[in-house]
Design a protein around this nucleic acid. Structure first.
Length: 395
DNA sequence: TCTGGGGTCCTAGGACCC
DNA sequence: TCTGGGGTCCTAGGACCC
C-alpha cells in the first residue's frame, strides 16, 4: 500500500491532500482541533491551519509514515521527529491510529482474497500473492490481474497500492518499488541483468544496514557486483548460510512459497517513557507501567486464544543499549499475574543502574489455548541454568 | 530535544539426555 | 584414565522487516 497510514488519514482529512503530513506524534493537539469543530461539523471541516505542525511538536518519537509531499523534504519513515522538524517544520503531524489502519488493512486484504486466495500476510500494509493459478493471472505477464486488483482495492477502500509481478517473491518485492505510488511493474526472469543488477544491495529484502555496510567494505555496491563474486568467496566472508543466500539472491533465485497460514511465535508489549526513568528513583511509576504491560499482553493472548510459557522482559537504557532476559516456566499461561511475577524474576537478573528509556514484556513459546499441549499437566521443570540476581529485588 | 512498536529468524554456548 | 557424538532445550543478543 502507498504511504499507508498517511493515505488512511487523508480519507478522514481530505483537506490535507497535497500537504506534507507525517504520522507519529501524540494525541493532544489533534484532539484540541476536533473539540473546536464548528457545530455540526465533520472532520473534513477542520481548517488546515488548526492542525498541529512539526515545529510545534515537543517530545520523543519517530515518523511511521510520511506522505509523498513530505517525502519531498527528505522526511521518511523511522526518522526521529526532531530531525524531521528541522527538515520540514511546517509538516502537519498526526497521531498514529492503529485501530483505523487495521480496519483498512483487513478491508484491502479481503478484496484480494476474493480474487486471489493464495495470499501471504506480510504485515499491515503488504502481502504476497500467488498469481499462478488465478484466472487471467498469466495474461500480459500478470499486468491485467494487477490492474484489476488495484481497481478493486481503490473502489472498496479509496486507497492506492503498488504491485510488482515477477517469477518469485524476492524479485516481486523489489519490483513493487519501481513505480510507486499507484504503479505496476512486471519483471521477467530475463530482466535480471537490466533491472535488478543495477540496484543497490540494500534494496534486497534481507540485506539491512549492517550487511550493506560490510558489502561496501568489500567494494560491493550493487546486486550485479554481488553476483560477480563466487559463491565460495561469499561463504568464506559471510558464513555458510548468509553467503550461499546472498549468491542465490544476486542471481534472482528464490524458491520460497507463498505461505497463507502461520502461527504466532510470540506476543509483546513495550513502551518508551516520556522521560527516562530510574529503577530506584522512579520505582513506583515503573512498577505501574510494568503491571500495565503485563495486563495488555495477557489480554492480547486471551483475545487471540493463545498461551505461552517463556516470559521475557526488554529494557532500553538511556544510551540505547538493549538488554533482554527471559525465563521458561513449567506450564503455559495467559495470566497477567503469572506474567508479571515471572517478568519480575527476569528484572532481578538485569543491570538497573542506568536510567531506562523503554520497558517491554514478551510471552513466547506459544500454543493455542485449547491445544493438547497447552492443556497437558505441567512438565517437569528443567534444571535452571546458572542464573544470578545482579540487583536486589526492585519489583 | 536524535532514534516507536510489534514481530521473525539466526547464532552461539551451556545444560542435559541418550 | 581418558574421551564420543547427536539432539533438544534454554537463554541472550542481534539483524532485519513492516
Amino acid at each position: 500500500m502507498d504511504a499507508f497510514y498517511g493515505s488512511v488519514e487523508l480519507l478522514r482529512y481530505p483537506q490535507l491532500k497535497g500537504e506534507p503530513v507525517v504520522i507519529g506524534g501524540g494525541r493532544r493537539r489533534v484532539d484540541e482541533a476536533i473539540r473546536d469543530l464548528p457545530e455540526g461539523g465533520t472532520l473534513a471541516d477542520i481548517p488546515v491551519d488548526a492542525f498541529p505542525r512539526l515545529k510545534d511538536y515537543t517530545g520523543r518519537g519517530v515518523i511511521t509514515t510520511a506522505t509523498y509531499p513530505a517525502r519531498q523534504f527528505g522526511v521518511g519513515s523511522a526518522m526521529g521527529l526532531m530531525k524531521a522538524a528541522k527538515l520540514c517544520p511546517q509538516a502537519i503531524i498526526l497521531p498514529v491510529d492503529f485501530d483505523e489502519y487495521r480496519r483498512y488493512s483487513r478491508a484491502f486484504k479481503q478484496v484480494i482474497l476474493e480474487v486471489a486466495p493464495l495470499m501471504e500476510d506480510r504485515g499491515v500494509d503488504e502481502v504476497y500473492i500467488d498469481f499462478t493459478h488465478v484466472p487471467g493471472g498469466q495474461r500480459d505477464g500478470g499486468r491485467s490481474l494487477a490492474r484489476l486488483l488495484q481497481k478493486a482495492i481503490l473502489d472498496a477502500t479509496g486507497l492506492t497500492c503498488s504491485i510488482g509481478v515477477a517469477p518469485n517473491k524476492l524479485i516481486a518485492k523489489m519490483a513493487s518499488e519501481f513505480e510507486k505510488p499507484n504503479g505496476i511493474s512486471v519483471v521477467y526472469e530475463h530482466d535480471l541483468q537490466s533491472r535488478i543488477w543495477p540496484l543497490p544491495c540494500r534494496k534486497v529484502n534481507g540485506i539491512g544496514p549492517k550487511a550493506d555496510e560490510k558489502l561496501k567494505r568489500f567494494g560491493i555496491e550493487t546486486v550485479g557486483q554481488l553476483a560477480a563474486h563466487e559463491r565460495d568467496w561469499l561463504i568464506a566472508n559471510f558464513g555458510k548460510a548468509t553467503g550461499a543466500w546472498m549468491h542465490e539472491v544476486a542471481w534472482g533465485r528464490d524458491d520460497r512459497p507463498v505461505v497463507t497460514e502461520s502461527e504466532p511465535v510470540s506476543m509483546s508489549r513495550e513502551t518508551t517513557f516520556e522521560r527516562d526513568l530510574h529503577a530506584v528513583r522512579d520505582r513506583a511509576e515503573l512498577g505501574a507501567i510494568f503491571t500495565q504491560l503485563c495486563e495488555k499482553v495477557a489480554e492480547d493472548l486471551r483475545r487471540k486464544g493463545y498461551v505461552g510459557k517463556t516470559i521475557g522482559i526488554k529494557l532500553r537504557y538511556d544510551d540505547f543499549r538493549i538488554a533482554t532476559r527471559d525465563q521458561t516456566i513449567d506450564r503455559f499461561t495467559a495470566d497477567a499475574k503469572t506474567i508479571r511475577q515471572t517478568g519480575g524474576q527476569c528484572l532481578k537478573r538485569v543491570p538497573l543502574e542506568r536510567p531506562l528509556r523503554l520497558l517491554g514484556v514478551r510471552v513466547g513459546a506459544l500454543a493455542k489455548a485449547d491445544s493438547p499441549e497447552a492443556l497437558a499437566p505441567a512438565g517437569a521443570p528443567r534444571a535452571a541454568s546458572q542464573v544470578q540476581a545482579t540487583t536486589a529485588s526492585l519489583f
